[in-house]
Simulated scan of single mutants.
Amino acid sequence: MHVLSTIPASVIGLFLTWCLFPVAYAGTYFVIQEPAQGTQWTNNAANRVTWTKGLLDGVDVVDVEMSRLSQDGLIFVARDVPSNLHALNIFIQDVPPADDYFLLFINSTHGVMYASSPQFAIVNSGASNATASSPDPTVPTVTVSGSPNPTQVFATTFPPSANGAMLPTWQLIQGSGMQMFALMSTLLICLFGGAWTVL
């Protein structure tokens, strides 16, 4: 007689869902607040970028790129921006005016995109519809210039904050409760799957 077959499938499904919940909850909340839809950035001025993100999402740094919808190519703004800054000033000069720009917050090493901004415009500083921007003096300012060019490097690279290296889970004493829970859940699922196969 199969002991495991007496367990209702709904209970098994609920148990497996509960075990995988920490993986599914890994936090995908990442929103670029500024520039908002319809914002106009001005050439030869610092323009503010702000964002909000999840606390436990594991995203420590982001790479910021600017692109246009109607043209190929990227403007590489900043690499390894600490995500806990929540703001950055971008000083733009000689960037072609258009109304189809947007920002990308990505991990350029792995190609993972965390967020994209709404579409915004860039106008020349002398234009009649140019609006003054209010940069945040407490955060870094990055200067970019010229049109999208895939052969350029990032305008600014921030110093490494934690370089992504971590000690193995069993060597972390403090703050490792969630990692130990995930490891034990994985082992339990493997044992459960092996027992299910044998019986």
Rank of each mutant, 00 (worst) to 15 (best):
residue 108 S to M: 11
residue 178 M to R: 05
residue 193 G to M: 14
residue 176 S to M: 09
residue 119 Q to P: 00
residue 144 V to T: 03
residue 74 L to M: 12
residue 160 P to T: 12
residue 15 F to T: 06
residue 157 T to S: 13
residue 14 L to T: 03
residue 55 L to E: 10
residue 94 D to W: 00
residue 135 P to D: 08
residue 112 V to H: 12
residue 129 N to Y: 09
residue 134 S to L: 05
residue 171 Q to G: 04
residue 54 G to C: 11
residue 30 F to C: 01
residue 127 A to P: 03
residue 13 G to K: 10
residue 43 N to F: 02
residue 56 L to Q: 09
residue 107 N to S: 15
residue 83 S to C: 08
residue 191 L to E: 04
residue 119 Q to A: 07
residue 16 L to I: 13
residue 65 E to K: 13
residue 123 V to M: 05
residue 105 F to M: 14
residue 46 A to P: 08
residue 61 V to C: 08
residue 161 S to F: 14
residue 106 I to H: 12
residue 84 N to K: 12
residue 159 P to V: 11
residue 86 H to D: 05
residue 6 T to I: 07
residue 190 C to P: 00
residue 186 T to N: 08
residue 4 L to R: 10
residue 76 F to I: 03
residue 132 A to N: 05
residue 24 A to H: 06
residue 106 I to M: 00
residue 107 N to E: 10
residue 126 G to P: 02
residue 119 Q to W: 00
residue 183 L to M: 10
residue 178 M to P: 13
residue 41 W to E: 13
residue 80 D to R: 14
residue 154 F to Q: 05
residue 32 I to L: 11
residue 25 Y to R: 14
residue 185 S to P: 08
residue 19 C to G: 06
residue 158 F to P: 07
residue 118 P to H: 09
residue 60 D to V: 08
residue 183 L to V: 08
residue 78 A to M: 05
residue 47 N to H: 03
residue 135 P to K: 12
residue 34 E to N: 09
residue 54 G to H: 02
residue 143 T to C: 00
residue 187 L to A: 02
residue 18 W to E: 06
residue 78 A to K: 01
residue 137 P to R: 02
residue 5 S to I: 10
residue 158 F to K: 01
residue 86 H to C: 00
residue 158 F to H: 01
residue 40 Q to E: 06
residue 187 L to R: 01
residue 58 G to Q: 07
residue 193 G to R: 10
residue 135 P to A: 04
residue 126 G to H: 05
residue 179 Q to N: 10
residue 137 P to C: 12
residue 102 F to G: 09
residue 75 I to P: 02
residue 130 A to E: 03
residue 74 L to W: 11
residue 187 L to W: 04
residue 191 L to G: 15
residue 110 H to L: 12
residue 166 M to D: 02
residue 58 G to S: 09
residue 49 V to R: 09
